[in-house]
Amino acid sequence: MSGPASPADYPLLLWPAAASSAAAHVDYLISAFTAVTLLLTVPIFLAITWFALVYRANRKVYRGNPTDRNVMVEMSWMLIPFFLTLGFFAWGAQLFDVSKHPPGNAMVIQGIGRQWMWKFQHPGGQSEINDLHVPTGQPVVINMISQDVIHSLYLPAFRVQTETLPGRYTQVWFTADRPGAYRLYCSEYCGTDHSVMDGEIFVMKPGDYENWLNQAGSTQSLAANGKRLFASYGCTGCHGAAATVRAPSLAGLYEKPVPMADGGTVIADDTYLRDKILNPDHDLIAGYKQVMPSFNGIIPEEQLIQLIAYIKSDQEPVR
């Protein structure tokens, strides 16, 4: 389905392919909403046209008893459409809520946006540029960050997009259910080659995906890579089990609250861990003397992701 080349081969497209049940839900929502808005607006168009023709100045029609106000009528056409449409607000908010909360068993693919390409890394360490392979039936979270300006990963076939911000991780998730090749785009304007920062997302049956993973080849998983980096950047010297310097243990830290020096607590999520690696002097932790050097400009974004994947995987409390 990667597509024929000549534009003449493309008939008039009117509806995009849907590759997930969530996408189908959005389609239901917009179809129903369209129907209701037509119900509310077509009478206006008809009435205006009808009145304009019937009450032309040169026509002799009954124009008696014109009203120029009627509070009941006005209140009703003000409020009834409002409450009708509020249903769609609730519906949309509910679907949005689902789209914000990936299921716990979701597979996490790491994404990096940069001018002007996407880079994705699978849990097993396989990485790809601009294209993305995902299995059907498996919830997939793409955990993304931008290396420079704001981008936005847009997957029309799943009816979802989320911006990637510099300095902060954002997520988008979906469960694909129809194998095929679909487009993925950067939808937030990001400079000269914004329009070629696109690619294809290949939805595959789980078996095919396994095969692809194997042939894509990878030496190490993200977490294993992270563990190697953890040692090579010297992190083990302080944070390792046998460390002599008094530094907080990172085992079991992920998603746990961290007490801060000024009394508050912060949840140790991806963004927090990344920030601490790059800028350890910032937001000091209670009970520890700050001696860690900054790794800003030393560890590239991809390796940060691997380090965090390692910290995430290291869930055994050591002490």
Partner: peptide, 11 residues
């Protein structure tokens, strides 16, 4: 907003 996001730095 800076105080909310970076309280220690602001202080």
């Amino acid at each position: 907003i800076l105080r909310i996001q970076h309280p220690q730095s602001v202080t």
